[in-house]
Design a binder for these strands. Structure first.
Length: 216
DNA sequence: ACGGGGATCGGCT
DNA sequence: GCCGATCCCCGTA
């Protein structure tokens, strides 16, 4: 059931474009324990230029070096004693990425729940650190190539529930600087999205184009 | 349903 | 030492 991984050139674009087009794609994670997957429902773009909140903003360090690596690789970092995962975008050396904030559980729900004991189905993968725990993603996957189709990858399943959705934009979560930017994107109406579904001003978040990509 | 505060620890000043 | 691209629990409504 694992479709072809998204190719390198999918990731080698502006992180805002990649972020929006990742919505509705399926993230797969295979370990000896089995296969787990989820539909991407919430993402954030971190830019190479003019974005103080991006980990790459002050140049390469031992921690963020994979964010400066080739597109289509993982950037996994730790914060508050948890892990979060990004897909690196644009060319090597640029330093941009897309944070995956939430997925909707699809396969291996029982396995994911065994990794996150006190979690309802709704909270299983709702949040960047929660989904990493559910998918068993940790630092050992930092720098891993998502286009290989092994261990972890993202694919366009081209099926069912994600044919009809709308992309909504809002300010990013937990970012105190760069408050003016609306670099968080999520699928309108999904209960598996973390954080507010309206922007900070209390107005409806901006609705962007309908289902992104989607062959025609 | 929503909001506030504490836990927790690696990375950087 | 300080500060998070966070999570969870426990108040109130």
């Amino acid at each position: 059931m694992s479709a072809t991984p998204l190719p390198r050139d999918f990731y080698d674009r502006d992180p805002r474009t990649v972020a929006q087009e990742l919505l509705g794609k399926t993230m797969h994670r295979r370990t000896r324990q089995g296969l787990t997957s989820g539909t991407v429902v919430e993402v954030e773009a971190y830019l190479a230029q003019g974005d103080p909140a991006a980990h790459s903003a002050r140049g390469p360090t031992p921690r963020n070096r994979s964010m400066f690596g080739p597109p289509g690789h993982l950037y996994v970092y730790s914060i508050h004693a948890r892990f979060c995962l990004n897909a690196v975008t644009e060319s090597a050396g640029v330093g941009s990425a897309v944070l995956i904030r939430a997925v909707q559980p699809v396969a291996g729900v029982g396995l994911m729940q065994s990794r996150r004991e006190r979690s309802s189905l709704r909270d299983l993968t709702r949040g960047p650190a929660r989904l990493c725990e559910a998918l068993s993603v940790a630092r050992d996957l930092d720098g891993w190539d998502l286009t290989r189709g092994r261990r972890i990858w993202i694919a366009d399943e081209g099926r069912s529930h994600r044919n009809d959705f709308h992309v909504v934009a809002s300010p990013r979560i937990g970012v105190t600087s760069a408050q003016e930017a609306r670099l968080r994107y999520f699928i309108n109406g999904s209960p598996f999205v973390s954080g507010p579904r309206r922007d900070h001003a209390g107005e409806p978040a901006i609705r962007l184009a309908g289902s992104p990509s989607r062959g025609a």
